[in-house]
Design a protein around this nucleic acid. Structure first.
Lengths: 223, 223
DNA sequence: CGCGAGCTTGACGTTGTTCAACTAGAGTGG
DNA sequence: CCACTCTAGTTGAACAACGTCAAGCTCGCG
């Protein structure tokens, strides 16, 4: 039933470090699962039992706290999630929820830990990945705490177009409310900002359909 | 001249993983340096050449961007800084500046990389450390983007008292302006908030001298 | 056709920033 | 020892940015 990891064409880069035996062990200890839109892959503060590789679809990484929720990042194909929970607490430090239907590989975390303690090449790639995560978080902290609403929405649009879809015309996968949680602003203000960009002919907007008309203007606005 | 790492009593926990030979290699490739208040240990976007262990004193980890500066965290004795720059860019992803006089061990980054690729126990401890960093950044993102001024200042005071000084009476090492960069608010508002806490008898305040009178109140306000 | 959730709009209130003026204290040269 | 200066700290008032509230709208779906 399980696709062999050794034959998987869209596996994460860190698996290139594994031996045939290690790949076989992963193959035997993984589950290939489809999560539907809105379903929870992992829950903040839950015991860290698995790590996840996103094979297709989009997930949101978010932190929840009493009433307010904040989307830390969006992750798509190729992303690995859950490694950062391997710390003093061994609890997931964020929640991950499917934005649309998502195919994942779910791997028992002990297997990964076991490989980590035997394969230093693998560990090194993991360290690299964690450091890229830290980089992203640093720029996120800056964005959310120092930039104004207009810049944050502009940055979000550039991110969607360039990093997620790779084209200038796409259907926004998030609701206006989720866009608010992503940019840390009220839903109403998301609407106002998008409308404003539309009025200025920087984007075309019709419901969830978005077309970026002037990417350079957005990039300039986002800084 | 160099203190032997094998004999160092306040070295970072990750060194417990090293062999005698590895410790000797570190000893031979480190420098023990004192940075004076205001001096720069590492500069954002500079080539990552060394990692730093703080032996005494206080440093601020900050990101700079055109006009605005943001203090990400304060680090004291036992902290290791610079590992997170080992990623695709190999450039420091933040600046580190001495808040007061600071003793550090400065270790060539290639030495650390070399040990990492040979000692999987060391790598594991590093991964743990990076994951704790990610944890801290996540709670920082939440604090800076979701909490109001009062909560942010309260959290900062609790942090200073509990994590940095371990007592309720201390001399604030940061200027009002730096406190603004730490809490992401205007200097004037730092002054107003501190004064407000003083008026409410939650703290005693005289210039840089701070005494926490009601830690529980601060903890409650900070959430 | 009607219901409901998500979206949109405008008015208004609150929070936080900016600006300008003033104060206190530390260092400097006469 | 006393002006003098310079920087950090403080204060109040005006202003801008953003959130909240209430109402109306749209569109998919039963």
């Amino acid at each position: 039933m399980n696709t062999k990891c050794s034959l998987c064409s869209n596996r994460s880069a860190c698996f290139d470090e594994l031996s045939i035996n290690e790949l076989a062990k992963v193959t035997d200890n993984k589950a290939e699962i489809v999560y539907k839109k809105g379903e929870t892959l992992m829950k903040q503060n839950g015991a860290a039992s698995h790590i996840y590789f996103i094979k297709s679809g989009l997930v949101k990484v978010h932190v929840e706290n009493q009433n307010k929720s904040l989307i830390i990042e969006l992750a798509n194909k190729g992303s690995m999630l859950g490694i950062s929970s391997l710390n003093h607490s061994n609890r997931y430090n964020f929640s991950v929820t499917a934005v649309n239907d998502v195919e994942v590989c779910e791997i028992n975390i002990e297997i990964i830990q076991n490989i980590m303690t035997n394969n230093v090449g693998f560990s090194t790639v993991i360290i690299n990945d964690l450091n890229n995560t830290i980089d992203k978080l640093l720029s996120r902290i800056y964005c959310l705490s120092q930039k104004n609403m207009q810049s944050r929405v502009a940055e979000m649009l550039v991110f969607m177009s360039v990093k997620i879809f790779g084209k200038n015309k796409f259907v926004m996968p998030l609701s206006r409310n989720e866009l608010g949680e992503l940019t840390s602003m009220a839903t109403e203000n998301v609407v106002r900002m998008l409308k404003d960009f539309h009025k200025k002919s920087i984007i075309n907007l019709s419901g969830k359909k978005v077309e970026i008309l002037d990417l350079n203007a957005l990039k300039k606005l986002s800084s």
